[in-house]
Every structure is written in C-alpha cells, then in structure tokens.
C-alpha cells in the first residue's frame, strides 16, 4: 500500500511539474472558464432570467467543461514520445498509475475551480452569506467523482486519432448525475437554505463518488492493455 501511494505520488508530482513548466492545461482551462462566465453574464437579456436562477447552472457547466480541457491534457502528455510505454514497462501496479493520474487531475480541476469561483461571484454578483463552507463541500463531493470518470475516459481515448472529440462524447453522459446534484444543492445554498435541506442530493453525490471511484480503479488496468 505504501509503495502504491509512493508511486502514485511520483506520477502525480511529475504531471504537476510538467504542467508548471508548460502551463498548457491550467491556463487554457482558466481562460476558458473566465470566457464562459463573462459570455453568460453579458449575453443574457436583462429581465428574462434572474441571475439567481441562472448562476448555479452556469457555475457547474463552467467547472465541468473547463475540467474536460485538463483531462484532454492528462494522457496527451503521455502520448508525446510514447512516454506511456515508459510507464507501462515499469514494474508498477496499474492502480498506482490510475491513482497518480487521478490525483494530478484532481489538483488541476481544483485549481481551475479555485480561480473560477471568485470570477463567478464577481460576474453574477452572488451573495455567499454563510454558504461558502457548504459550497466548498458540494464542490469537493461533485469533483471527486467526475474527475475519476474523466481520468478513465482520457486514458481510454488517448490512443485514438480523435481523442479530443471522443472524450466529451463518452464523458458527458456520466456527468449528468453529479451536475444535476451539484446544481440542485448550489441553488438552494445560494438561496440561503440550510444544508439539512439538501442531504438527499449530498448522499447522491457521495454515492456517485464511491461507485465511480471503485469502478474506475477496477477497469483502469484493462483499458491500458493492448
């Protein structure tokens, strides 16, 4: 177990270091998120839909689509110079590879969310009140699950010619449950409702996390086999 974590951390640290050098995924994802938030804010006709009704959906569409940009990069990085082969011939369990890639993706997506969230508050003039800790909780719960799914699908499409096109087609259907749950919870929290009112949705998000983290960890080794 210690070896698994040590190897996973080595892979995640390598991904983070490469990203720090190239800044390809983070910069494009943050720029994309800022653009989406700005477009939704300024393109909306005043008085047609209230900010409060629109804001949660915009927030989660922004988070998930920006995350997809980072997933595309996760294994594209390994395609350059066939670096993935270097990982596959090493004496490491495939589980360490999944965990390492997952942790790196989680780091990228949380970074994008941390930068996008203040922009969201600014553009949509959202009053957070006491809801910030609860919003962080739901963001964490939703992100943990869909990043696992995104990690597996990005590994699955990396050897195909149309990886950038295939990833959204495969990934988006699996986003429906966490996005619906996260939007429902965010709507109520921004409306000043207590956390106790959304326990059902939070349980759904937690169940999604447990199920998909387990399934993804189990299927990942088979995906990498030629």
């Amino acid at each position: 177990m210690t070896d698994l974590i040590r190897l996973a951390w080595a892979i995640a640290a390598k991904d983070l270091r490469v990203e720090m050098r190239s800044r390809t995924a983070i910069v494009s994802a943050v720029f994309f998120a800022a653009l989406v938030l700005a477009i939704f804010n300024f393109a909306r006709a005043p008085g047609t839909v209230s900010q409060a009704m629109l804001a949660p959906s915009v927030l989660w569409v922004t988070f998930t689509f920006a995350a997809m940009l980072t997933f595309n990069r996760a294994f594209a990085l390994e395609r350059e110079n066939a670096a993935l082969d270097g990982l596959l011939v090493a004496p490491i369990p495939r589980g360490a590879l999944f965990l390492g890639k997952y942790v790196a993706n989680l780091g990228f997506v949380f970074t994008v969310e941390a930068v996008s969230f203040p922009l969201f508050v600014l553009f949509f003039n959202v009053s957070l009140g006491d809801a910030l800790p609860s919003l962080l909780l739901v963001t964490g719960l939703a992100t943990v699950g869909f990043v696992a799914v995104g990690t597996v699908f990005s590994a699955m499409v990396v050897r195909t010619r149309f990886a950038d096109l295939l990833l959204p087609l495969l990934f988006l259907p699996f986003l429906v449950p966490p996005v619906i749950g996260a939007v429902q919870v965010t709507t109520r929290l921004l409306d000043g409702r207590p956390l106790s009112e959304v326990w059902g949705w939070l349980r759904l998000l937690a169940a999604y996390d447990v199920v998909f983290l387990t399934v993804c960890a189990m299927v990942f080794p088979a995906i990498l086999d030629e």
Binding site: K14, V18, R21, S22, N81, A83, D85, G86, P91
Partner: peptide, 17 residues
C-alpha cells in the same frame, strides 16, 4: 518488468523535463 530495459524508437521522455 524490472528485469527488462526498453529502448523504443521513440524516446519515452518528457520534453518539458
């Protein structure tokens, strides 16, 4: 796999490192 070393026709290296 630790017994095997592979030199592929691609470098297996990360360009940014």
């Amino acid at each position: 796999r630790a017994d095997v070393g592979l030199l592929s026709h691609q470098s297996l290296l990360y360009d940014d490192l």
